[in-house]
Design a protein around this nucleic acid. Structure first.
Lengths: 194, 194
DNA sequence: TGACAAAGCGACATATATGTCGCATAATGG
DNA sequence: CCATTATGCGACATATATGTCGCTTTGTCA
């Protein structure tokens, strides 16, 4: 039952992801996605009825993946420092992956008064992200690897300041060392000196 | 000669500014600006031929104003701490002024591959901003009010991290204390303890 | 105040995106 | 293998934004 449809939808999401990350949400049209996937208009509309729907399915997808990743590693008793390292690396690679990151598209999507006003998927993603970080930090405090810090504060610095820095340095086309510094500061904020 | 035209153009820029700040760059159409100003299509096109042109004129306008403001105050030998306070307050009020700030629209404008690719106005604005901050910080170091810090680093933290935090806290609809904390940290980074 | 220029108007042609529909083709399961 | 359903196609109607143009109205200045 419908294996091909699933594959097509996944292909659509993958192609659309790159488009959203490169151009932002509003800049991407159904026609663009048609061209990227090789589907015709009718073919695409068969699976998704709007860019909004595609976007939301992408966004919801990867916050859930992130969540399970970290929780699985904590259950395997992998050192908190290692999980932290990996999570930061994932942020890093996501940002580097495309000319511009998907984060801005998410911001654009959510801040736009005409779209996604009653939708709370992005807020939900934020809650999930916060939950993941809080769990990791508390876990690290439990294993005596991390200092006693406020998980929420660390999360805010990371997600907000770090991504803000990334965005703006890319905007200004600066090879700024600031993002690297911030990652370093987050680590030193968390990790116990020994 | 042409006083009315100047006044109309200024009105267009003022109305358009609010639209860009609220909705981002791409979301604003010439028709929107018509409605906001009360002008007809033909009337608007008489003055500006695209939203891009209007946007650039706005952006170029206010970085130049900021520059002269700070330099005038330094010439009047106003204490560096006071100028700093005022500049931070201006950032703050600009961010609070609209539902969303113009900063995002600037980012959107510049990062969009299809627009403003060869234009360097935004980069120029960045250079001007950096120049202003560097001058202020060096001035404060000269008057022995500020500690010896790297002006560029402070600027980056301010513009990048601060605005990133602002953006994301608004995105997530959080009444975060982080922006306030960051301003506090910038001040303590700069000001000498006495 | 009258002539000329500037500003403003709205209909029109053009371009592009959306969303739909009947039909064609390909996959699936009995 | 055939019937049925899922998938894919492209033309079409609709909607919205752009940019133009001839005409009217309003300023401006000699």
């Amino acid at each position: 039952m419908s294996q091909k449809g699933d594959k097509t939808r996944q292909g659509i999401r993958e192609k659309a992801y790159r488009l959203f990350a490169e151009k932002g949400f509003k800049e991407v049209t159904m026609k663009d996605i048609c061209e990227a996937t090789g589907l015709s208009r009718g073919g695409l509309y068969r699976h998704y009825e709007s860019t909004e729907q595609i976007f939301l399915e992408i966004v919801n997808g990867f916050s859930n993946r992130q969540k399970s990743d970290v929780f699985v590693k904590m259950e395997q008793h992998i050192p908190a420092a290692d999980i932290l390292e990996e999570l930061l690396a994932k942020y890093e690679s996501e940002m580097m992956d495309c000319e511009n990151s998907i984060s801005l598209a998410i911001y654009e999507f959510y801040s736009n008064p005409t779209i996604g006003k009653e939708d709370n998927s992005v807020k939900k993603q934020y809650e999930i992200s916060k939950e993941v970080w809080a769990a990791l930090i508390n876990y690290g405090i439990g294993t005596n690897e991390f200092q006693c810090v406020d998980p929420e504060a660390v999360f805010h610095v990371l997600v907000f300041a770090y991504q803000g820095v990334r965005m703006y340095s890319r905007l200004m086309k600066i090879d700024s060392e600031i993002p690297v510094q911030i990652v370093g500061e987050i680590k030193s904020l968390l990790l116990k000196k020994d």
